[in-house]
């Protein structure tokens, strides 16, 4: 079973490296943001697999948090790219 985990980990890591390349190289900002989002997701799987390998359940919170952050981060970037700002100004003031 352990071998299976390791193989999966290596495969995900290869994906991670590919994403990292896209992050560095990525011709447009959007490429990089998507790469970053995917990196977040692959980090989730990496951490999950690592938890299995080192046999601990303490990192499950990290996985949840990472998923949320990855989502928020991507939204923020997307909003930034679209409108040039992240937080809307309150017009009532």
């Amino acid at each position: 079973m352990m071998t299976f985990y390791w193989v999966s980990l290596i495969l995900v890591s290869l994906g991670f490296t590919g994403l990292l390349f896209r992050l560095v190289k990525g011709p447009t900002i959007a490429d990089r943001v998507v790469a970053l989002d995917a990196i977040g997701i692959s980090l989730v799987s990496i951490i999950a697999l690592l938890s299995l390998i080192i046999e601990t359940e303490f990192f499950l919170e990290v996985i949840l948090l990472l998923s949320i952050l990855s989502f928020i981060g991507t939204i923020a970037f997307a909003k930034f790219l679209e409108r040039g700002e992240i937080f809307d100004r309150n017009n009532h003031n």
Binding site: R32, V33, I39, G40, L43, I46, L50, F58, V62, G73
Partner: peptide, 20 residues
């Protein structure tokens, strides 16, 4: 963005060095 990647890699280090 690259700085963010550095930060996340450090977080990953924390994971493999068992610091949740």
């Amino acid at each position: 963005i690259a700085l963010g990647a550095v930060g996340y890699s450090v977080a990953l280090f924390f994971v493999i060095f068992r610091a949740p």
